[in-house]
């Protein structure tokens, strides 16, 4: 075992040893299970992401992992491979600019629109560990909407990150990034070395596992959908299918926010791009 640990700590050569056939096998496995396209020559990414799983399964190389998957079709190992490859880093108030636009323009407009029903609904698609949904929840509380009927649905393909999002507990490193200290002081409690969100912030949120390639007919209607830095991983037909699905979950005139490197243009021309400040939002017809 000591030898295995040493091999993996020194690292680099193991993924390079991955056979071309096994690379294709992992590409196909990921595509079938999640729709995500693993580009050629991403051996290093495979190694970094799958190393903990190799250790857990007491395997020496990625080739061994492929052999195990082929031989057993073990659904747990299979799911862990997908989860390891689809876990995306996130942070509170990520990119800052879209949240600024939400705070100054889009949310005040929604509050005015729904002042009679006092009901707002949002979807953080591909929510990862929940920071996006909770950032929104904090913004809404800061706007004095604590007594409104607010629902923020957070979904992700990855069960592990959904569980972490539900727990609403973050490390010092995670709260240090992007979260203004006045919100940390106001909306978190210290739990040992970690920080946990107060019930009032969690109250608006609900987290579920969901595959964006599935039918979205039962979701929504939403006033606003976040789907950031996800489409980039899919092929064009899948991007189109996801955008059409999201459009169907939005209220008329509802908005979609994509990652800064993503767009609906040439994929779904029914969305209308709308620039607010430094951010672009996509408005449903």
């Amino acid at each position: 075992m000591a030898g295995q640990t040493e091999t993996f700590t020194t690292g680099g050569g193991r993924a390079a040893d991955l056979t071309a056939e096994n690379y294709r096998f992992l590409q196909e496995h990921l595509y079938k299970a999640s729709g995500i396209i693993l580009e050629p020559d991403r051996n290093h990414l495979l190694e970094v992401r799958l190393l903990p799983l190799l250790r857990e399964q007491k395997l020496v190389s990625l080739n061994d992992l492929c052999a195990l998957l082929r031989a057993t079709r073990d659904p747990v190992v299979s799911r862990h491979v997908v989860e390891a490859m689809t876990t995306n880093e996130t942070l509170f108030f990520r990119d800052a600019h879209p949240f600024q636009a939400l705070k100054n323009e889009l949310l005040p407009a929604l509050v005015e629109l729904h002042k009679d029903t006092r009901k707002l609904s949002f979807w953080s698609a591909a929510c990862a560990t929940g920071q996006e949904a909770y950032s929104l929840s904090i913004l809404l509380l800061e706007m004095g909407l604590a007594d409104w009927n607010v629902q923020i649905l957070g979904t992700d393909l990855n069960q592990q990150v959904v569980e972490k999002a539900r727990a609403a507990r973050y490390s010092q490193l995670e709260v240090n990034r992007g979260l203004p200290a006045q919100y940390l002081v106001k909306y978190f409690t210290r739990q040992g070395q970690d920080w946990e969100l107060k019930p009032e912030v969690k109250r608006f949120t609900r987290f579920e596992t969901f595959d964006l390639r599935s039918s979205m007919a039962h979701l929504g209607p939403f006033d606003f959908v976040f789907c950031r830095n996800v489409l980039i991983y899919f092929d064009v037909p899948t991007k189109r299918q996801i955008l059409e699905g999201i459009r169907g979950t939005l209220f008329r005139g509802g908005h979609l926010l994509l990652g800064s490197a993503e767009t609906t243009i040439h994929l779904d021309n029914q969305f209308r791009p709308r620039s607010i400040g430094s951010s672009v939002f996509y408005q449903a017809p």
Partner: peptide, 8 residues
Amino acid sequence: IIRDKLKL
């Protein structure tokens, strides 16, 4: 962390 905080 410093970059993100300053941007915000």
